[in-house]
Amino acid sequence: MTLTLTVSDEVRALAPRFTYVTVEAYGLVNGPSTDGTSAILDDAARRLAVRLEGRPPHEDPHMAAWRETYTAFGAKPSRTRNSAEALAKRALSAAGLPRINLLVDLYNAISVAHLIPVGGEDIARIQGGMRLVRATGDEAFVTVAAGEEVVEHPDAGEVVWRDEAGVTCRRWNWRQGPRTRLTEESTSGLFLLENLAPMPVATVEAAGAELAELLEKFSPGARITVHAPR
């Protein structure tokens, strides 16, 4: 089984040099964070610090490109940061990176080490294919606030990932909904690594390969496919 992902013409017009790599995996083993995943997160934070050489994350050329793209569809990038910038900011703070669960820790580490937005979805919870579109504003985004399930709607023109049931991630890669997130019971995952120029496509390919290696290490025997950039 290969999950279908598509990018709408409207999004391509907004960001014509956008590319993405997907890692599709079945037979995964998830569970609580371990000493091993914690060490990988710590190493990712060290790699980030070396990459930035004292600069704040938003000054990295790849993060600057994401900020420009967020502004282009009406988001305020200083208030709603892309997922890589938000994680990088946490990695460099006194609090450090959160420990969520084994699979989330692995893809968060790749995101921080390479400064690439990376998302992870439970394939079993996705309804139909995944589409990156500009929202009409009527779509449902089911999230949780104060412990209660609430339904939000994206802004008209906002870039969102969605499936047949509704929005799975708002503002491109800002906030994932709980419906498709990877939990400790998840056994399949779609990992999406997103890239904008000027970052070379080869960099995101290398990040995808590194993530696949980590998934194989922590889930020996899993069926893992790295799909070429699209």
Rank of each mutant, 00 (worst) to 15 (best):
A65R: 01
E53S: 14
S111Y: 06
A45R: 09
I110M: 07
I100F: 14
T69E: 00
H114P: 10
E24Q: 15
N108R: 11
L41I: 07
A135G: 12
L48Y: 07
R55P: 08
R47S: 11
L87T: 14
A64Y: 02
R90A: 10
R90E: 09
P117Y: 04
N108S: 13
G31M: 06
G120W: 01
P56T: 12
T143H: 03
F141I: 10
V118S: 05
A64S: 12
H62R: 04
N108D: 11
E85H: 11
W66S: 06
T143G: 11
I123H: 10
G74S: 09
A135S: 15
G27M: 01
P56C: 08
G120A: 09
R134S: 12
P117D: 02
G129Y: 13
R55K: 13
N30A: 11
R81W: 04
A94Y: 01
L48F: 07
T71Y: 00
P61Q: 05
E68N: 08
F141T: 13
A39E: 06
R99E: 15
R81L: 07
W66E: 05
A140T: 15
G36E: 10
D105G: 09
I126C: 04
A49D: 10
P117V: 11
L102C: 09
G128T: 15
H58Y: 12
G137E: 10
R134E: 15
W66Q: 05
E121T: 13
D138G: 13
L103G: 13
R90I: 02
A113C: 05
K89N: 06
N30I: 05
T136I: 08
A64K: 09
I100P: 07
S93V: 03
W66R: 04
D43T: 09
G128S: 15
E139F: 12
G120S: 12
G119E: 07
I100L: 15
E24D: 15
D105T: 14
P56Q: 02
P56F: 00
G36W: 00
A25Q: 03
M63Y: 00
G36A: 14
G27F: 14
I100M: 11
